[in-house]
Every structure is written in C-alpha cells, then in structure tokens.
Design a protein around this nucleic acid. Structure first.
Lengths: 229, 229
DNA sequence: CCCGATTATATCGTATACAATTTAAGCAGA
DNA sequence: TCTGCTTAAATTGTATACGATATAATCGGG
C-alpha cells in the first residue's frame, strides 16, 4: 500500500499540472487535507516535496502557493532543457539498449496515433507520449543527477499544454525530429543525437514564441491573486 | 526567529558535510530529535528536504540514511559540473555586475589567504571560500533553475574535502585558474569564461584521480553498515 | 546444529491538539 | 476620508499519542 503522503503528493501535483490549481493560488494545508480526506501531516509532506521540485512556493507561517513563472523564467527553463536534453541524447546514443530503443519506438507510435486522431489531435495523448519519449532518452543516458535536474523542467510544458497551439506544420516537424532522434540513437551517433534533440527543443520554442506571442506569458502570469482584485 | 525545521535542516546538513554523519549511517528521527532537542516533526521536515537534495535517502517505514555515492556516480556528478558551471560562467560573463565582480575578488583573496597559511594550508578555509567563489559566478549567471541544478553537486567536494590531497602544484594551478576566470568575466568574454571554468573542474578531477586513485572511492563507499560487520 | 515460524523491538506514518505567527478587519481619532 | 492602532481570524509550527510496518531476536522443531 502506498502511503498517504505519496498519494497526496500525486493528487496535488496532478491538480497543478491539469490546471485545476492555477499559478498563484494558495494551497492551505487544511483545505487540501479536507479535499483528499487526509490529515494535515501527509499534505504537509506533499507540499514540501512539491516545493523542492519548484511546483509550489512556501513562505514561513504563510503557507504554499502554486508557483507562477515569469516570461523570463520560461526562457531560462527552455535554455536549460536545450543544454541538458542535448547532453542526455549524446550520452544515450552511446549506451542505449535494444529494450530502451523499443520502448522509444512504442512511445513514438503512441505519439503519432495521438497526432493523427480525427477529427482533432489528442492533446493529452500528445503531451503524455511526448513526455515518455523524452524521459526514456534521459533514462537511457544513465546519469542520475542529469535525470533529477531535468525532471522539474518538464513541469512547464505540462502546465501549458492547454494553451499550446499545435498547428499541422508544427506537428509534422516534431514527427520528423522524433524519427531523426531515433535514427541517431539507433546509429549510435552521439553528436548527431545531441544536435537533433537541441533542434527539436529550439524549434518548439520558436513555435511557442511566434504562433502565440502572448499565450505563454499569459498562462504563466495569470494568477489567482490578480483575479481576486 | 528561524523555525525549528530550518535549524534542524542546517544542523543535519552540517553534520553530514563535516563527516560526523558518514555515508550509509542511519538517521532515525528520534535520535536526531533527541540530539537537537526538537520533536520528530521538524526533524522529519529536515530529513525530507535533505532527501530531495540528495544528501540522504529515505526508505518507507525504514527511515533515512546518509547517501553514499559510488565511484560511477562521482564521475557523473563531475561531468554535470563541467557542463553546468561552464554554462554558468558563459552567462555570467555577459551580465556580471561590478558588485558581483568585487565579491568574487574578495572570495578569491580569502581563498589565497587560506592557501598560503603557514605552516599548513587551511583546508576548511579553502573549501569555504572556493564554494563562495563558484556560487557567486552561478548567481551572477542569473538563471534560477541553473542554480538549483548545480547546488546539490557541490555536496560532493564538501563531503570529501577531508580526504582531498592539496599538493602545492594543484593549489598553484587552481590559483591561476581563478585569476583567469576573473579576467574572462571582467572582460565580458563568455566563451573564454566557459572554457577556463571547464578547464578548472576537469583539472581538479585529474588531480583527484591521479594523486589519490582510491581515496575518492574509499571516502564515498565507506559505510557505517560495512563497518558494523 | 541448523532452519523456519513467532514474538519483540525499533522505527516510521498519521492524526490530533495547542501554541505562535501572520494577515486581514474593525474601529477610534484626526 | 484617511491613518494608525487594536483586535479577530486564518494558517502554519511543533509536540505528542497511537497504530502500522519492517527488521532483528528468540524459540521450537527437524
């Protein structure tokens, strides 16, 4: 049986990533405890854990609120992803196993299925399979500290998936990138893998910036506090 | 007044970095609480926070123990430092302020003083001023996520400072590196700064590996568990 | 003498109670 | 009406109690 702390952690995390708990919203321990049917203790554990992952911020004697990122921080996160995931792809190319490659193919199949669902692409499906795809590569890189450094940076795209504009061009380009990444990893070419991965993330950033210049900052900045005034 | 959780956190962290709590040692909440004069609650908070920083590992219904790193993980950590601190130096070169540069000079002065203390170098002084030196650069880089990713990687050199061999050559080389880093940052040369910083860390790794081939792994692997058997 | 089951101990997981602190509200006075 | 102080409410910080779980020790059988 999983502990209450664990379940509280996942429940709150999911609520934040789903957008039910929005940036800036306060998260009183009592409230969460009431919603989930636990006491404050496990909720406290969960909030502090989320704090260390950067999803919530805690002020002494005041409590937790959902982190809201500024436009500048969004750019900082992306810059980090480019560096770290590029490195991950490089390492993975040298040591990825057939099993991991197979898993990668499966996630990519799921991704393509979600993309070509009619009449509209399956946004949740895209986000989930995409995350698994990237996570598999980082895992294959086999550096525990790299994994820990990257994980929090994936919160951003998940929080913002609802605001993302997935044009047909963008999806087609991502599809090509995914396939080329798989090719580079299969071929065991570290530098190739690194550069394609960087391209993949940079291109996504460009689409976010050009197609929806304000959506990102809006999504990030929107706060419960502001709304109340 | 700082909270008990905060103080417990710093107390335990210091004990680990000082080597009083060694790798593999169990840290029962009751025991720590007794030593520090707190109840279990704040100690629990502290241990979970240290867990997320990687200094302790927690198993459900078993408790916390001080993390011990394998030789491979030590290498992974260093590889991460090379990448992240190189990037930090690059960013810092473009935006460091005169105040930060001044602070950097002060930490370097302190470092040189500690190095040339007679009759023997001041190991603690070296470790502390060195950490402040590096931390100032990362802070000047102005990327919050970069800071968070690097901080846990500094635990390693602090835990191992007592085992490190600081030969005169090594200290002299580090001195030159520090000065060149300052020069590159002053000149606002990102690429120069990045490469010197990488050199600095790689060189340190080489000294650790060559001068004391087993000390590192010994320090890392030595465990309370093993000793008891 | 060794091995498996059972009890005992140590430790954590969670709930709850109360103290401490911060924020917000209300009120008096200028 | 606005400012400053006092009071009230909300929320966290900490201690403690009890139940749950894993590890270690003990005991009986082979």
């Amino acid at each position: 049986m999983t502990t209450s702390s664990e379940r509280a952690y996942h429940a709150v995390k999911e609520a934040i990533l789903d957008g039910r708990y929005r940036g800036g919203m306060r998260l009183p321990e009592d409230m969460i405890a009431g919603e989930l049917g636990f006491s404050r203790t496990p909720v406290r554990d969960a909030l502090r854990r989320l704090n260390s992952e950067g999803l919530v911020e805690i002020a002494p004697n005041f409590g937790a609120r959902v982190t809201q990122w500024s436009q500048m921080q969004l750019e900082e996160m992306t810059a980090m992803r480019i560096m770290l995931e590029g490195y991950a792809a490089q390492l993975a190319a040298a040591k990825i196993t057939p099993e991991e490659l197979d898993k990668l193919l499966q996630h990519n199949d799921a991704w393509e299925t979600a993309v070509s669902r009619s009449p509209k692409p399956d946004i949740d499906g895209i986000a989930n399979s995409n995350l698994r795809f990237h996570r598999t590569i980082v895992s294959a890189a086999g550096n525990k500290f790299l994994t820990q450094a990257i994980e929090p940076l994936w919160h951003l795209p998940l929080v913002m998936k609802k605001y993302a504009m997935f044009s047909r061009e963008r999806l087609e380009l991502s599809r090509q990138h995914h396939r080329e990444i798989i090719a580079a990893l299969s071929a065991g070419e570290p530098q190739w893998a690194c550069e394609v991965m960087r391209t993949h993330i940079v291109a996504a950033r460009a689409f976010d910036a050009e197609l929806a210049p304000d959506a990102a900052s809006e999504a990030a900045m929107w706060s419960e506090t502001d709304a109340a005034e």
